[in-house]
Design a protein around this nucleic acid. Structure first.
Length: 350
DNA sequence: GATCCGTGGCC
DNA sequence: TGGCCAAGGAT
C-alpha cells in the first residue's frame, strides 16, 4: 500500500509554495523549517486556498524567524486579520521570539522540543518533523482521519476513535520516505478522499478500502452529534470622523485572551443571550452623540451566533475619547486590520 | 474529554 | 440557504 501511495504522490501530488517535491529532495534541496512551520500554523483548520496569500505576505514582510520575532505584535496581528483563530497569531509571534532568542533561530527537530513551543501541538510537531526535517513522524490530521476511517471502515465516532486511527495510520507509514509519506496521505485526503463525492476511481488505495468495497465511503468518518449554537445579542457603536480617503472610525483593542483576543473592535456592549437584558443605546454609547440606528449584522462564530445592532454617529471637532480608544482609517488597507465581525459592523454604518 | 477559539467556500 | 467542512491548540 505504501508503495502505491508514494507512486501516486510522485505523479499527482500537489506543488505548494512551502513543499519540497520528491524530485527536489532527491536533488538535495532541504526545506526551510521556518517556512514549513509558518505554513503549518496557518493551515490549522484553514484551507490551502485561504492560507496561501497570507503565507506569501508573511514571508515577504518577515523572511526569517528573526524578522518575525522583531516585528511589533500589532503588525503581526494586523497581517493575520481575516485568517481567524487569532490565538494562532499570538502564539506565532511568541514562538518566533522563543526560537530567535532562545534557540539561536534554529527550530528543534525532536517532538519534545517542538511541542514545548507555543502553538505547536501533537499534529504540528509531527508535521514539522516530517516536512521540514524528513524524519519519522505520525501525522494525523482531519485528512488522515478521513482516509483511515474509510480504509478500515471504523464505526466509532470521532473524537473517541482517534487512538485507533493513529494506530492504523502508523502501521501504514513509510520509514524510508517519512516526509513524502506524511504529505502524500494528506494530499490523498485533500484531493481524492474528499468529504463528499470522493474520487475512488483515481485512488491508489481503492482496492484496499473497506468502505469502498461496501460502497458507503461518505458515511466516514462517523462524528459525534454536535450541539446547537446559542444566539447572543449586542450593540455596536461606530463613530466616524473625516470624509473620503481620510475617513476614520473609533476602535479599541480587545483583551488579550478569549474571543478575538488582541484584535481591534468598535465600542459596544457585552454580548448576551437575553436581548431584553441589553441597555438602551444612549446609556451604552461610548460618547454622547447624535446616534442613528444604521442596521443589524449577523456573524456566526464556532460556538455561537452573534447579532449586533449597529449605531452610527459622526464626530466633528474634538472629544474626550474613552480609555484605550483610537482612530483608524476605514479605507481598505486599514480596515483589513479588523476581524470580520467588526468589518461587518463598520460596513453597516457607512 | 469537553469547551473555546474564525473564516470563507461548498452544494 | 444554511449546515458542513478545513493541514488543531490551549485550557
Amino acid at each position: 500500500m505504501r508503495a502505491r501511495l508514494l507512486a501516486w504522490y510522485d505523479r499527482e501530488g500537489r506543488t505548494l509554495p512551502w513543499r519540497i517535491r520528491p524530485e527536489e529532495r532527491v536533488a538535495g534541496r532541504v526545506a526551510d523549517a521556518y517556512a514549513v512551520w509558518l505554513s503549518e500554523i496557518m493551515l490549522q483548520q484553514t484551507t490551502v486556498a485561504h492560507a496561501a496569500p497570507y503565507y506569501a505576505k508573511f514571508l515577504s514582510l518577515w523572511p526569517t524567524v528573526h524578522d518575525l520575532a522583531d516585528a511589533p505584535r500589532e503588525d503581526v496581528m494586523a497581517a493575520w486579520a481575516g485568517l481567524g483563530y487569532y490565538a494562532r497569531a499570538r502564539n506565532l509571534h511568541a514562538c518566533a521570539q522563543a526560537v530567535s532568542r532562545e534557540l539561536g533561530g534554529v527550530f528543534p527537530s525532536d517532538l519534545e522540543g517542538l511541542r514545548a513551543l507555543p502553538g505547536i501541538g501533537e499534529y504540528t510537531a509531527h508535521a514539522i518533523r516530517a516536512a521540514a526535517f524528513n524524519l519519522p513522524a505520525s501525522v494525523v490530521d482531519a485528512n488522515v482521519e478521513r482516509v483511515i476511517t474509510r480504509v478500515f471502515r471504523i464505526e466509532a465516532p470521532l473524537p473517541s476513535a482517534k487512538p485507533d486511527i493513529r494506530k492504523h495510520a502508523a502501521s501504514l507509514a513509510d520509514p524510508a520516505r517519512p516526509g513524502d509519506y506524511a504529505q502524500a496521505i494528506m494530499d490523498l485526503g485533500a484531493v481524492i478522499c474528499t468529504p463528499r463525492a470522493p474520487s475512488c476511481g483515481a485512488c491508489p488505495w481503492a482496492a484496499h478500502c473497506a468502505a469502498r468495497a461496501a460502497g458507503d465511503q461518505e458515511r466516514y468518518p462517523v462524528k459525534a452529534a454536535k450541539k446547537v449554537k446559542p444566539v447572543r445579542h449586542g450593540l455596536a457603536f461606530v463613530v466616524l470622523r473625516g470624509e473620503g480617503e481620510g475617513r476614520e472610525v473609533l476602535v479599541r483593542t480587545r483583551p488579550d485572551k478569549g474571543l478575538l483576543g488582541g484584535m481591534l473592535e468598535v465600542p459596544g456592549t457585552d454580548w448576551v443571550v437575553d436581548a431584553g437584558a441589553l441597555p438602551g443605546f444612549s446609556e451604552a454609547a461610548p460618547l454622547a452623540l447624535r446616534w442613528r440606528e444604521a442596521g443589524r449584522i449577523t456573524h456566526v462564530f464556532t460556538h455561537f451566533e452573534l447579532r449586533l445592532t449597529v449605531f452610527a454617529a459622526p464626530l466633528s471637532g474634538e472629544a474626550n475619547l474613552p480609555d484605550g480608544a483610537r482612530w483608524v482609517g476605514v479605507h481598505p488597507i486599514r480596515a483589513a486590520g479588523l476581524p470580520t465581525a467588526m468589518k461587518k459592523a463598520v460596513q453597516a454604518a457607512l
